[in-house]
């Protein structure tokens, strides 16, 4: 069977590498791309991916959506059919794992499903070990700042720990800053705000 061209768009280096290796094992040709770079349009056009696996929360998703509407040759958002429970379960698992996918016309469903299942498994596994990885990588002082910022966000936003973490991560992506720097500024802003704004 001919190999498929798979494009992975993701910021998390460990996750990318593990998934890339796994898809290679399945015989596919895999190219990785960092999220949020300006040349994605050209990259997709020149690589002709059969399937794009992308972090669900990547801002680049709208770029892919746009490309899909502009040309039939570009991969389209993966679609499930409500009457097929298998499809729906795969989609739900993908969304919960934070995986989204764009596929080219005419791909066989079972080939797509095998790739999706692999991606979902790797994203799930990664989220389990994420905390450990972070602890190993971040200095104690930085970890404390991040913990404090998360706590303040949870209190202010009424959200849970994961949502607070995702918020910090998204601000970091928007600003192009590192997590500890974002955490420090969030603490500063929320401290300055306390008392000024009352519900």
């Amino acid at each position: 069977m001919k190999h498929l061209n798979v494009l992975i768009i993701d910021e998390e280096a460990d996750r990318v590498q593990a998934l890339k290796d796994a898809l290679h094992q399945l015989g596919h040709h895999v190219v990785c791309h960092l999220s949020d770079t300006s040349d994605l349009n050209h990259h997709v056009e020149s690589f002709h991916p059969d399937i794009v696996i992308i972090d669900m929360d990547s801002p680049d998703r709208d770029t892919l959506e746009s490309m899909a509407t502009m040309s039939q040759n570009n991969p389209r958002p993966i679609v499930f059919f409500a009457e097929q429970q298998n499809d729906r379960r795969t989609m739900a698992a993908a969304i919960n794992a934070g995986v989204s996918a764009y596929i080219a016309d005419g791909l066989q469903a079972d080939r797509v499903k095998a790739i999706m299942d692999t991606a979902i498994a790797h994203f799930d596994a990664h989220s389990l070990i994420r905390t450990e990885l972070e602890e190993a990588r971040t200095q104690l002082a930085d970890r404390k700042v991040i913990e404090k910022a998360k706590g303040m966000l949870m209190k202010h936003q009424g959200c849970d720990e994961n949502q607070a973490y995702q918020t910090l991560r998204k601000i970091a992506m928007d600003r192009g800053q590192k997590l500890p720097d974002v955490a420090a500024s969030v603490i500063e802003v929320l401290n300055a705000t306390n008392g000024l704004l009352k519900k």
Partner: peptide
């Protein structure tokens, strides 16, 4: 809870 999202998709 207001959840910040990175894309319309």
């Amino acid at each position: 809870v207001l959840s910040k999202e990175s894309s319309w998709a």
